[in-house]
């Protein structure tokens, strides 16, 4: 018996370690999931049940009325058509802003690594500074610029702002990815007869999906969740969903409808959640993928 215990002790120790590790991980995961759980359950409860006061209790009667109201008929300010317009408004500027900033970032990275010129490293460093400039600093100059360009209070203007602000990040991503592309590949393509743009389209972009995913997730999250640029630069009736959500939740008139607030908040967060779930595994892969081994 004693022998048996001794022989098994090593394995037993490892199993115990596993239990501790997994237990801890599950605990932390639960802790982080708690707010989501509360949001979800609250959003499908009736107002009476919420008033009864038990925050973490499961709903007695499940109703999706709050979701329907948040989407279609809740009032934000004077407008009582729900968040759907704001949702589509957000989509309408986030998609072009993400696509354009990613494409330009890829192009910048391509030039800064594979077509270096005198001062290209300095230029890159200068662009990096853009990563550290807080939103608030650029508000006034940006408003002035948009005015000059005739883009004030337009969706194009908001796209422009997000593209400009995102370029520092997207350039950084692509530049660091392309650094590991062997220069000889570009030389080979030049000898094969390919020009500057052909090499970009036919050779460099096709090997970029990992970093494109990273860039898209990053940009989508940033731009979709942005509040400040949205509230400052968007036209009154084309407000992004983050701004509408704020107006909805911070309203101080009437009865506070927590279930509608929660549903609205989840609706506002769904697209980023969706992007992470669809592309998440590529995200980590892209962050760690450096080399482009043949």
């Amino acid at each position: 018996m004693a022998d048996f215990v001794r022989a098994d002790s090593a394995g037993g120790g490892r199993a115990l370690g596993r239990i501790v590790v997994y237990g801890l991980l599950i605990l932390v995961a639960l802790y982080y999931l708690m707010p989501l759980f509360v949001m979800l359950t609250t959003s499908i409860k009736t107002l009476e049940e919420i008033r009864a006061g038990n925050l973490i209790a499961l709903p007695g009667t499940v109703t999706f009325e709050a979701w329907a109201k948040a989407w279609g008929s809740v009032c934000t300010g004077a407008d009582c058509s729900g968040l759907k317009n704001n949702f589509w408004s957000s989509v309408s500027f986030v998609l072009p802003a993400v696509v354009i900033s990613t494409l330009i970032g890829a192009f910048n990275g391509y030039v800064l690594t594979l077509w270096r010129f005198k001062g290209s490293d300095l230029l890159f460093t200068t662009m990096l500074v853009g990563c550290f400039i807080p939103f608030q600093v650029v508000l006034l100059p940006m408003a002035q610029t948009l005015g000059w360009l005739g883009l004030a209070n337009t969706t194009s203007g908001l796209v422009f702002v997000h593209v400009v602000y995102g370029l520092a990040f997207t350039t950084l991503f692509f530049r660091n990815f392309y650094v590991s592309v062997p220069e000889e590949m570009v030389k080979a393509a030049r000898i094969d007869g390919a020009g500057f743009f052909t090499i970009f389209w036919r050779i460099i972009l096709p090997l970029s999906p990992p970093i494109i995913v990273v860039c898209v997730i990053w940009q989508f999250t940033q731009i979709w969740n942005d509040f400040l640029f949205g509230v400052v630069f968007s036209g009154g009736d084309r407000q992004p969903i983050t701004v509408a959500l704020n107006n909805l939740v911070n309203t101080s008139t009437g009865v506070k409808e927590y279930n509608v607030d929660m549903a609205a908040a989840i609706i506002a967060a769904l697209p980023t959640l969706f992007v992470y779930i669809v592309a998440g595994k590529y995200f980590v892969r892209g962050l760690t993928a450096g080399s482009v081994k043949g």
């Binding site: 062997p182 000889e184 590949m185 030389k187 080979a188 000898i191 050779i203 096709p206 090997l207 043949g294």
Partner: peptide, 14 residues
């Protein structure tokens, strides 16, 4: 001319 490189420089996606 045509050139052969040390790192082969093949196009990895093709």
């Amino acid at each position: 001319i045509a050139m052969v490189f040390q790192s082969y420089a093949l196009y990895p996606t093709m």
